[in-house]
């Protein structure tokens, strides 16, 4: 999985309320509509301007807060190739892998808004083409690689007739 696109930069502690706000609770059963508001409370321009393959680049503790799986789902629906952050909140991270949204942990201080990035998910490589540098990423835990390789947790469960982790 190789993605090339632009970086959208966000700060620390981007919560699931920033990504899929409670005031749009009624849209949770209409994900394509909810996706039009993705990350609206962190950057009102993001949803209308993001291009397929672009990257969401956060700071520390990305995705903290509620268990709403709608958050990674609408980031994926918006066409985002991967989310890069210094660290992720636990439930968001697990949800993202479960539904096949790649998440990579790396030093995002080396990325500025608008930088062109090339990200190879399977190899865990992040290249900042604008700055001409490679950024080291933390390898995904084995259990997460197994789930991603099976195509998400549902496909994993169906393939193995249960959890084979």
């Amino acid at each position: 999985m190789l993605f090339k696109g632009k970086a959208w930069k966000f700060g620390d502690d981007i919560s699931t309320d920033h990504i899929a706000p409670g005031r749009l609770f009624h849209l949770r059963t209409n994900l394509p509509e909810l996706a039009k508001h993705v990350l609206e409370d962190a950057d009102p321009e993001f949803a209308s301007k993001v291009q397929p393959g672009d990257f969401v680049v956060g700071g520390r503790n990305f995705g903290l807060g509620s268990s709403r799986e709608h958050a990674p789902r609408i980031i994926k629906l918006a066409g985002v190739g991967a989310v890069l952050a210094k660290s992720f909140a636990r439930i968001f991270y697990r949800n993202a892998i479960n539904i096949g949204l790649p998440v990579l942990t790396c030093d995002t201080d080396q990325i500025d808004a608008g930088d062109e990035l090339e990200v190879d998910i399977s190899r865990g490589e992040v290249k900042n083409l604008t700055k001409g540098i490679s950024i080291k990423t933390t390898a995904l835990p084995d259990v997460m690689i197994k789930i991603l390789n099976d195509g998400g947790i549902v496909e994993h469960f169906k393939k193995h007739k249960g959890f084979a982790l």
Binding site: S67, P72, I91, R94, N95, N98
Partner: peptide, 27 residues
């Protein structure tokens, strides 16, 4: 397990209670 992050509340009775996403809880 609960599709709500504050599922951990039940930990107070001596349970291992944790929040997950909808798909995890569905399975």
């Amino acid at each position: 397990i609960g599709a709500d992050s504050h599922t951990c509340t039940s930990g107070a009775v001596g349970a291992f209670a944790t929040g997950m996403g909808s798909t995890d809880v569905a399975l």
